[in-house]
Design a protein around this nucleic acid. Sequence first.
RNA 1: GCCGAUGUGGCUCAGGGGUAGAGCAGCUCACUCGUAAUGAGCAGGUCGUCGGUUCGAAUCCGACCAUCGGCUCCA
Length: 633
Amino acid sequence: MTLPDNSVREYAPGILLVDIAKSISHRLAREALAARVDGRLVDLGSSLKGDARVEFLTFDDEEGRQVYRHSTAHVMAQAVQRLFPGTGLAIGPAIADGFYYDFEPKDSFTPEDLVKIEKEMEAIIKANLPFERTELSRPEALAFFKDVGQNYKVELIEDLPPDVPLSCYRQGDFTDLCMGPHVPTTGRLKSVKLMSVAGAYWRGSEKNKMLQRIYGTSFPKKSMLDEHIFRIEEAKRRDHRKLGAELDLFSIQEEGPGFPFFHPKGMIIRNELEQYWREEHKKRGYQEIRTPIILNRLLWEQSGHWEHYRENMYFTTIDEGDYAVKPMNCPGGMLVYKSRLHSYRELPIRLAELGLVHRHELSGVLHGLMRVRCFTQDDAHIFMLPSQVKAEIIRVIDLVDDFYKVFGFSYHVELSTRPEKAMGSQETWELATRELKEALEARGLDYKVNEGDGAFYGPKIDFHLKDSIGRTWQCGTIQLDFQMPEKFDLSYVGEDGQKHRPVMIHRVVFGSIERFMGILTEHYAGAFPTWLAPVQVRVLPITDRHAGYAQKVVDRLGEKGIRVELDSRNEKINYKIREAQAQKIPYMLVVGDKEADQKAVAVRHRAKGDLGAIPLAEFEEQLLEQIREKDVS
RNA sequence: GCCGAUGUGGCUCAGGGGUAGAGCAGCUCACUCGUAAUGAGCAGGUCGUCGGUUCGAAUCCGACCAUCGGCUCCA
């Protein structure tokens, strides 16, 4: 057999993989969970028949982790069967950070049940039961699962192609349909934690019965589990809904579920973002427009939204006419383009719009600013000659790149291609997809392809940014749209004096300002960089005696456009600092006798702590520079 | 929309068939203080909404609303 490092070892035919692992090293024997033999994942208990490339998988390998978690899911199913006999079993795969199993219990699981199940799992792990694989024929498998009354398993088997070999895994008193592989024994599982119960539709379709899904995770070391739990806590600590309330940025009230209210401090961040956005777009040849929120039903019929998007739209009646509240900005943009004749000399025309759209989202999906029923897209529709497409896409990619860098995000790109039910000809799609690819390649960007994930009207490039705790969010997108120019009969007058159809792209950079603010809040854990911070400086006089000088400092900084506050309350300096820190204000200026005498300020930075006293003029200069540069530190 | 959980002063939470409690925040007063909580006092709630059971409901029951965790969908 050949190992990944290309070293070759000889064994008697039929040797078990476990024994090979043992012969290589104790450590490998202890850590190996499964193996890959000639590209196929197998149990360590399987034997080697002839020459093969063998790779042992541990928890450090993605597949190794999946085997580990998947085995844990089986143990959970076994525990559930023991405690709640007769519970239906659906599926139980490994997922990114753990695993789940979908059950059909007689009664819903309670949090207390989870504790019991976890206990039972520990007992199963302690018993160190071997996972035993058996291969069986389709009729045998059907007979077995019918016999034990596991109808979901029967359904799964019936849906499998008839020629695939079926396998089951048994540990102790529990057998489950499974491709495998699994860890050798239940004792290999160490730290297990059940996280939550939730409803989940059988096969993910809301038309099907809702099952009970238990989420859990497992690690080979307690310390790794603790670290995982700590990461979850960290995400909670950064939750923009919690920070949004604490920092008084926004609120969502019962009177408007999914319709956020922006408070003064939230508006400062929002306006800073929009101001930056406007500057950058102006520099890059965009013109800003604003289109109405309510438009006649006929427009939505023309655009196809009436047909394709109606269930997400809000409607109203004006003078007995039917109107809709816009869920997208494009139709409005089309009308602006069409409002007069265009020459090929004008193209590309870049019409940008910070457009407020409303969408009826299901009540159960609303989530702070991340998932709302009205939001502002930083939209733009670019109308071009076919020959301009590639260069224009590169310009948009550059724009997105510049934006994300300012916030300290790294990102990756995905290209989505033609979906099953798409409009337009195969050739147009191929051409468009090629243009997007060429633009990405010209720009030297790596990208992942999502086959069939494009919009029905065209392929798209999506930007997935990565926040400071490693989560990814889809924000920017560039979509080539062949439908709208067609449906709205857009045209420009070409060199030949004839009418031609322009090409259109639709793009956003932030995506939604609301969601982007939510992401920023979590990314920075509420400590916004100075240029965005609602309050940039708070001046803290030590005693009443220093209030006069403190006020002068506030006035002077305020005149320079710095957002500055005075905390003249009759409190100790420690108390004032504590509050300013809690509000994550970038700079606290402590002023007492010394500072007043020397026209200085004692600077405390929220993260760097006490930086000592410097002349006020010097502080002001440094601060303005930092704001101008949009310094993220 | 569906499954499950939750809903008590601005916030965090206790209590629980006999009519509501703490800490923090707020206000007032005293202290005049040098880098993360000075002390004292005061005020603040139709216990999510509506209905039912009961002599009596914040407490038990039901419906609805909202929130949280998921599913599905998505910027």
